[in-house]
Simulated assay, not measured.
Amino acid sequence: MNIKNFTFPEILRKVRSKNFLFAVLAVIYFFAVIELHLTISNFVTHPQNFLLFNIRPRNLAFPLTLIVFITLLLYLVYQLVKGSRKTISVFYWFVLIFSGILIYKFLMVHPVEIAHYFQYALGAFILSKAFDPTGKEFRFVEVVTITSLIGAFDEFYQFFVHCPAYCRYMDWMDIWLNIFAAGFGGMLIYGFKEYGNSVYKISFPFLKKTLLFILSLSIFIFVLYLTGILNFYTDRLIPPKGIVWEDSLKIFFEREPGVYDSWQKTFHTGYFYVPGPLFGILGIFFLYFFLLFYTPGLFHAFYRKIKSFSFK
């Protein structure tokens, strides 16, 4: 599309549209989440003075989460009475909540990491308004995909750039949390709603571009691994950022030996499990594609596509 075809009033109208304003808000929000990661972490982990009280905000993680959890259950009960697509929606909510509880119990260093859910669920909500201000077009795929990609980028950025000294390993669990949060946000907008074919169409061009990007990135990572540049594990201490120049460039996702695929001690919950790269990457793929198939008609469209190939 040639920008010369736009008149100034048309450009002004687009700039003033809700889509544009929410898109700008989403960019600002995600930029703040990524850049203020360390600042927020320091704020919640250190004592703060609130009026007459001196507290650590992280100690409020569990009670606040409990309040949100109860509110969410009330919301689900309400939707069971009033909503549509109840069976599939309840199933997805059950999987998301149950998986979230398992992660909380076995994989979290501290309950404060629950903040990932709130950060990226809110981001998904804002992003959905950029694509679909009315919530009637079912842009679930776009919202979950973009939010998940930003969430994955966030964790790589923290490891390699923003706060490498604090990262002993590339934390796949945090990426899982961000994808879960994208699903939570998307389900809050589009869950328990009926979307007929007359209301929306599956965005196959977007899906194809996304799958092509994922495939290209996977091949790139695999090539780095085969050439010895990328190393998932280490047998020695690696400096911050996980990048070492020896005879050649080497990139490590683990900076301390024996961290991945092991139980690590934490001061709060006793022990937590650190998933290794294989488990972490497979988990990312599973979570993302699991969420995609909440899209009405996508599973049948995918099945028909596979069936058409099998009979050729």
Rank of each mutant, 00 (worst) to 15 (best):
M1G: 15
L51Y: 05
I28T: 06
P47E: 05
N54R: 14
F22L: 01
T45G: 08
N19M: 05
R13L: 06
F50C: 01
T39C: 09
H37Q: 09
F22W: 04
N19C: 05
H46W: 08
A23H: 00
P47T: 01
P47D: 10
L52V: 15
N54D: 09
I40S: 10
Y29D: 04
R58C: 03
E35S: 07
P47N: 14
I28P: 11
F43M: 09
K18T: 03
H37D: 11
I11M: 07
F8E: 11
Y29K: 02
V15D: 06
K4W: 14
K4I: 12
K4N: 13
V33R: 08
H37P: 05
P47L: 04
F6L: 15
H46T: 09
L38T: 11
H37M: 11
F6K: 15
V24I: 06
F43D: 00
R58L: 07
S41D: 08
V15G: 11
I34A: 14
N2T: 10
S17M: 02
V44S: 02
K18G: 08
Q48K: 05
I3G: 04
A23V: 00
S17L: 00
S17C: 00
P57Q: 05
V15K: 08
S17R: 02
N42Q: 13
I40V: 07
I3Y: 12
S41G: 12
A32F: 05
A26S: 12
N5V: 11
F6I: 09
I34W: 07
E35C: 04
F22T: 01
F6R: 11
F30W: 14
L51V: 12
V27E: 00
L12Q: 11
F50V: 08
F22P: 03
V33E: 07
K18W: 10
F20W: 01
N2W: 13
R56H: 05
I28D: 04
V44T: 03
Q48E: 06
F30P: 02
F8W: 13
T45P: 12
R58Q: 09
S17K: 00
L21V: 02
E10A: 11
A32Q: 04
R56N: 05
F6H: 10
K18P: 08
M1V: 13
F22K: 00
L21Y: 03
N5I: 05
N49E: 15
A26W: 09
T45Y: 02
A23P: 06
N42V: 06
F43S: 07
F20N: 07
F53C: 04
Q48S: 02
P57G: 04
L36A: 12
R58D: 03
I55A: 02
L36R: 13
F43Y: 07
A32H: 07
I3W: 13
F6W: 14
Y29Q: 01
L38N: 08
F30R: 04
I11S: 08
R16H: 14
S17Y: 00
V44M: 00
F50S: 04
R56G: 01
F30K: 09
L38D: 10
L12M: 12
F53W: 15
K18N: 11
L12H: 12
L25A: 06
M1F: 10
L52K: 12
R58K: 15
A23L: 09
N54Q: 14
F30N: 11
N19T: 13
Q48T: 09
I11C: 06
P57T: 05
L38E: 11
Y29P: 00
V44I: 12
L21E: 02
S41E: 01
K4E: 13
N49S: 15
T39S: 10
V15M: 10
